[in-house]
């Protein structure tokens, strides 16, 4: 998947734990783990908005596009 989720990097920068972030944005820790490990197939705008609000960042700080190496 060429879309990389840099949520853990942003969380480390903001010094926030997974449990704390999950509680702040109102999703289950299991779903947050799916997002952090890059297993997610899609992310809702509403979830992205809550993450950006909680981490005080832009969507581009969380998601990154890296083309597959052929």
């Amino acid at each position: 998947m060429p879309i990389i989720v840099n949520l853990d990097v942003m969380m480390a920068k903001r010094k926030i734990s997974s449990g704390e972030l999950a509680e702040k944005i109102g999703i289950s820790p299991a779903n947050l783990s799916i997002l952090k490990t890059g297993k997610a197939k899609a992310i809702r705008f509403s979830t992205m908005e809550k993450i950006c609000k909680a981490l005080d960042c832009q969507p581009g700080d969380i998601l990154e596009y890296k083309p597959d190496q052929e």
Binding site: I34, L35, A40, A42
Partner: peptide
């Protein structure tokens, strides 16, 4: 279903 399950 897989797509829905993995939509956060």
């Amino acid at each position: 279903k897989n797509e829905a399950d993995y939509t956060v």
